[in-house]
Design a protein around this nucleic acid. Structure first.
Lengths: 231, 231, 231, 231
DNA sequence: CATGAATGAGATTTCATTCAT
DNA sequence: GATGAATGAAATCTCATTCAT
């Protein structure tokens, strides 16, 4: 019984997700959604107070699930600030790309809606964004990132980049693919905020003899700049 | 006569800009706009085919003026890729901050509107964005930026950051100020894409005698990586 | 079982009485009433065919009880037309005042409802009104009231007065009290319809002598005007 | 132009009056009224904010006209409290009888509506009722009526009687005629509140002779109570 | 028998848009 | 050219009522 209800509610949400994403909130009608969900108009109102309530309820599950999965399944296994950051961005991009209706809804219908800010769905989205912020702050605290970067700004750059790409993807069809930009974005951003490594030390053993000078050994000192930054 | 008409049209556009920005496209009514402009509803339709046409026409002037001014008054006096980039971003941010109704309109009402993509207003916005892209490409070509960065991605990062901040500014009221983020954003992004200087060459003159070794000279080679201090 | 059912039905009726009286028939919803009665919507329909049927059923019990009590407990102990009349009006006013929901329902929701005229509840109310009419007719027949008054009109005056006060009481809050108007109304109406007493006869014994005239006896005849009218 | 508008508005009001009176507020639909008025649904809303606003506006004109006419055309020519009273009641009854839709609307739809109390239409009705009250008070002041009657109560008796008859007339079809009850109601009420005249004085001339006694003259004193026959 | 759940059936109301003047 | 006035065309939302369990 409760299952039937839940299923019905889900069907309404799924229909609404698709139709709102495709036609926009204003252009979509409850009738259309109800028909797509196989219920009557009135039934939609059994589950949702208003059309806007329906809109605002849609992202709840997906956002919650994604955040939960990230926290439970992914986060615990990550070591290192950068790895975490990469995982977060990857999670966003992958979520958006694998659920284009969802991302279209969030990017095109909800992000600019003042009322949405007051909903619990928005709370979840904010939670996810806070995870990213915490990660950046941790990176600053542990010396991975420069001390003087503004973590909020860094987050804005990252989220802004993600969102911009996602919107382009939806409206212009380009890029054709979101996840492949995860690394480039992060490389760019990380290069911009990474703390410089300790100065490189070079030791050169010169063997000076009458015959000449022979370089016997030239080795990088440990602690040199690692990673992609050298590209 | 034509002046009177132009003035009338401008009054309608200004009223519409304010009202659309404050209440959103759907919530605003033609009646309201007409009243605010001091004309009749029907007169609005003398100048604009539909409500949406009015919406799409609004940003035309401001966008065009801003772009023209940038090209004519600012651009010619700039030397260097980074200076140009900084000027572009500064122009965006300043335009958005000094014209909050305009930026609210663009960010909250137009950016997500599929129909807007087909308008000439959008063409102008695209032109401005192309200016930014050209600048990035020029930076790559002239060796300011790494050869392997994706200029489109860099632009997305920059525009995304700008837009994200602007949307937050409108919806959340934070940050309280846009232009002060111009430099931090660019510092971050530029640090991420700047080409490394030519490898640092160090020449050490060792004076090896029976008495010992004396370092005679140790100097940086020209072309070393410049630090932040120079910005 | 039947008791449980009867109790349930009563709970529904009581809830409906209160809610219909407070919000009006149209504004009240079955859901609301069902919830207040602690039953489901559908259960309401087990006991009442329609919403209107519920409305019409509500006054049945109270009206019937009041009429029955009047006939059984009060009427038998009354002697005289005026006493009866006073008791009837007192019963109305007291019933209305002690059961404000009931009187609001009758005065504000039912009295103007054409369909109500066909119900058995209305029959009861008509019965009560007939009691009043009978009493007036009896008063005419027994010479208490003038022969030429129209009993229907008298009843209309009495009922109209009662109803007018009751409606004012509900809508305007004034008078603050109904029963205290019983006597004033009746005094007014009775004074207007009471039959004049038999002509007053005066006998004067004049003792006429040569010495003069002496009034020996002057007495009222029996049958002079009685009652409150002289106050 | 304005005439056309006014005419249109009147047509809507007249259609609404008829339909609201016939079917009741809830049963009537705007569509029906619009059709009967020969306009579109939307046009109704050009003239009236809501359906209820339309309802409340209907009685305005008729009530106002009637009150104005009474005050300007009738009242100035009346002498004496009772004549005035009679004229007021006559005006009510005649208005109600000659405009059955209007009286049905007022008696069956408006009188019990709490929101109506806040309208300007109700103000007018209250004004008319105040006229009646003033008249009663004047009668008390000038000695026509007993000093100790409650003028508000008298008014309630009069208005209640009128309303009761009017409601019966609409719902039951009886009496078949309202105005013929004006006099009987007033006779009844006036008889109940009229101040008693000065005591009747009788002078008898007895002519006493040896032959016997002859009554020479027996006349009523002036100022004796007038009987019904004189009305 | 009680009810949770679903819905049929509209009605009100809103505006963008048109058109005659 | 400007506009007052009218309206076409829906869409949201509400409930009384029904029915399967």
């Amino acid at each position: 019984m409760s299952d039937i209800k839940a299923a019905r509610k889900n069907r309404i949400i799924e229909a609404a997700l698709r139709i709102f994403a495709e036609k926009g909130f204003q252009e979509a009608t409850i009738s259309e959604i109800a028909k797509a969900a196989g219920v009557s108009d009135a039934t939609v109102y059994e589950y949702f107070k208003t059309k806007e309530d329906l809109l605002f309820t849609i992202p709840e599950k997906l956002t919650g699930d994604a955040l939960r999965e990230f926290r439970e399944t992914i986060l615990p296994y990550l070591r290192g600030t950068e790895a975490k950051l990469r995982a977060i961005v990857q999670t966003y991009m992958s979520l958006y790309e694998r659920n284009p209706h969802y991302s279209a809804l969030v990017m095109l219908q909800l992000k600019a809606n003042r009322n949405f800010l007051k909903t619990s769905s928005y709370e979840q989205i904010r939670d996810a964004a806070r995870e990213l912020l915490d990660c950046i702050r941790a990176g600053i605290a542990d010396g991975t990132f420069k001390k003087d970067v503004d973590p909020l700004l860094v987050r804005s750059v990252i989220l802004g980049s993600i969102e911009h790409l996602c919107v382009r993807w939806h409206l212009l069809g380009t890029p054709s693919n979101l996840v492949e930009h995860v690394d480039p974005i992060l490389d760019l951003v990380l290069d911009g905020i990474r703390a410089p490594g300790p100065a490189k030390e070079i030791s050169v053993h010169l063997h000076v003899t009458a015959d000449g000078v022979k370089v016997e050994n030239a080795g990088d000192a440990p602690g040199g700049k690692r990673g992609k930054g050298e590209e």
